[in-house]
Amino acid sequence: MIRTENLTKVYRMGEVEVQALREVNLEIQDGEFIAIIGPSGSGKSTLLNMIGCLDTPTSGAVFIDGIDTGKLSENGLAEIRREKIGFIFQQFNLVHTLNALENVALPMFFAGVKRETRLKRAEELLANVGLGNRIYHKPSEMSGGEQQRVAIARALSNDPEIVIGDEPTGNVDTKTGNTIMDILEGLNKEGRTVIVVTHDAEIAARAGRTKRMRDGRVLD
């Protein structure tokens, strides 16, 4: 279970303080498929970064399976990101120097998985997202939809309980967006918690539960 407690994030940009999150309290059950929607600047990406352990709160706390992530060391956070969470970005964020197979295998490399095991699993994961014939292609040789599917395969490489998507359909056409949502739905059916941020109501409608955000607050 994921729970936030009075989660607050303040960014300081020179003299100006930006309240990105204001005392957010949110509970996400294991195996849930939740969509967070809201206009840009509403704080939804910041919330996602907090849950995904990419950023630390100014005050308040994030609990993942009862663990207060604010109390973890940097290595502890890296371990959660590596083992429990799969992150999918709007910009795909693949490593350009590596081909699809190596990109998918990278999180397993950081987890210390043996090379053969790693490459075999990466191949399977790519086949599962329909890219079995493109494994040696570099990101620059792939379309946006293909890159996002590689990114999804990468997010799954250490078999995480939680999959987080920050506008995962934001940079692809509607048809590809639907394919990606199909994949995410499938992951949810496998029992994974799926959290998606979007400003597309149609996409959000496919989630089990929707939360709206505005001005750093979660609306009921």
Binding site: E74, N75, E79, R82, E83, F87, N158
Partner: peptide, 16 residues
């Protein structure tokens, strides 16, 4: 910088 961020986001430790 971006690549380092990606590596860390998918679980690389600082020491990695």
């Amino acid at each position: 910088t971006h690549e380092i961020g990606v590596m860390k986001a998918i679980g690389a430790k600082s020491s990695d």
